[in-house]
Amino acid sequence: MSRRLLWSLLVIIAALALAVVIVPAWVIQPFRPQSPRGLEVSFALKRLAPFVTIAALLACVALVVKLWRGARWSRVFLVIILLPPAVSAWFARQNHFEWMFNPLANAGYARADAASFVGDGDLVMAVARNGEAVAYPIRQLAYHHLVQDTVGRVPIVVTY
């Protein structure tokens, strides 16, 4: 295979690896409307991304190794071009929505009369089940978006 062809292949694979993670992140961004088709494509890409990006990274490494010899000034470029597939392989394993809105790892609870952290006028999402009552202050829910709990022996997810 000619060097030119190998170079082109390297650039294309690196770009594809990047696209696999950028497209869903672009489609599913807040303050932008989403279409059912856009969601479908994003879902498929998100599911494939962990495998596709690793395969792309391995392919790129193989190509760089092959092109290394004989390349002189362009060795810097060979290293730089490994960055997009490497970053993609890492990003495909991240949940960037949970960077923005940290999940509540260890939810703690206070008795109603000891909950001085809630203002009287603050809204709460409330549930009562099999004799157990729980309130989830909206100001906290609006950040975490979801809280998992077991109320009255029933496992639930509180969403906001």
Binding site: N102, A107, A112, A115, F117, A128, V134, A135, P137, Q140
Partner: peptide
């Protein structure tokens, strides 16, 4: 209404 209830603590 629920004086015996529990309230989610802030993280």
């Amino acid at each position: 209404e629920q004086p015996m209830g529990r309230v989610l603590r802030p993280d």
